[in-house]
Structure formats: C-alpha cells, structure tokens
Amino acid sequence: MADPYFFGYGSLVNISTHDFPDPRPARLKGWRRAWRHTDLRPVAFLTAIPDPECEIDGMIAHVPRNDWAALDEREWAYDRIPATQSISHPLQHEVEIAVYAVPAERQNTPDGPHPILLSYIDVVVQGYLRAFGTEGADRFFATTDGWDAPILNDRAAPRYPRHQQLKPPETEFVDDRLKQVSARISEIA
C-alpha cells in the first residue's frame, strides 16, 4: 500500500507551521499559485490553479496512518485532489500525494474587504527562503498570480493564526520583493 503524502505550496512549506513528518522539497507540474478569496473565509489566501505551462516548488510531507482529518481541518476551504503523477520528489518508495485547491466556482479576486494578510505572506516566504533559498523564494513570487490584490499590513498584530517571527533579513526580503511586484500595502485602520 502506498504511503499518503500531501504537497504544500503555501504556508505548509514553512515546516514551523506543522508537525507532519518527513517533509521534503518537491515540485508540482501543471499548476501555479494564485491569491483568491472565497465566501468561506474573510481574507484572501493561496490556492493552486491548473496551468499546463507552469511548475511550482513546494514541500511534501507524510500523513501518518492515512489520517487526513487534521490536515483536512486546517485546509477546510479547499478540496483535496490526487496529484501523485504531477509531482517530482526524492522518495524511493510508493507514495500517493494529494494537493489542496479551492474549487474554481468558489474563487474570487481579492479586494478591499478581502485582502491578503502580510503575516500570511511572511510565513509563506519564510518557508520558501528556508527550504529553497532566495532563488526558490523568487520563483514563489514569479509563479504566483494576484500580486495586484490589496495587502493588509498586520505585522504589529498578526491575524494569520500560524504567524511566525521573521528574522530581519527575511523581513527585508519580503518587503523588497513586494516592492518589485508593485504590491499595494495598507496599514490597519
């Protein structure tokens, strides 16, 4: 029987946000990331969207005893989609890998009332910096759509439930790359 794994491409890349075992860098072919919001959550978040011309870096990790309940709860606004054949990874044994994505019919473009949280971006980029270095973090920005969405600077009082403390060079990297993509960042009123 194949071991169950998931492919994370956002906050799950940051292994400080979970304790799933055996995290490994991997790559998902035929998908890219996009910032979206749904009627299920008050803020925008990342989802994977099909794109046959794209590949995205991420992390796979083991789901012990095939117990998906905790991960399904964390990713409750997403559908779990089989993706084994689309993922390249270093494992040598038989695995089944799933990716989480928001159903297309529930996706909306982020807007003022549904911004991206800067504390969420920080967590994701910190994960990419630590797992893939600056080149991998740059690929994260390049393979993610929706940087024109409003971003709420909540660093002083993080609203993202799994926020992490960034080191000064990590914060500088995030701020620099957000400038490069001409991000619109607003302060909490």
Rank of each mutant, 00 (worst) to 15 (best):
E105K: 11
P52V: 04
R33I: 01
R139A: 14
A26I: 08
W35D: 03
P25K: 12
Y128E: 04
H93P: 10
D19C: 13
D111P: 07
A104C: 10
R36P: 00
T47F: 01
G10Y: 00
A69K: 15
M59V: 07
A44E: 04
E105D: 15
H18S: 03
L12T: 00
D57G: 14
R106A: 11
R24S: 12
S86W: 08
R74V: 00
A131D: 06
R33H: 08
P113E: 15
Y128L: 00
T38W: 09
D138T: 15
L117M: 10
D39A: 14
G127P: 06
A34L: 06
A142H: 11
L91T: 11
P113Q: 14
H89Q: 09
P110Q: 04
P110S: 01
P90V: 09
W147K: 08
D57W: 14
D111F: 09
R36N: 09
P23I: 04
G8A: 11
H89N: 07
V99E: 02
A137Q: 06
P103G: 02
R139F: 12
F45W: 10
D122F: 06
L118W: 01
E53G: 15
S88Y: 08
R139M: 14
W76C: 12
E55C: 12
A44N: 00
R106H: 13
E135K: 14
S88W: 09
P21G: 04
L40K: 14
R65D: 15
W147H: 00
T143W: 09
P52D: 11
A69T: 15
V63E: 03
L12K: 00
R139I: 13
P103I: 06
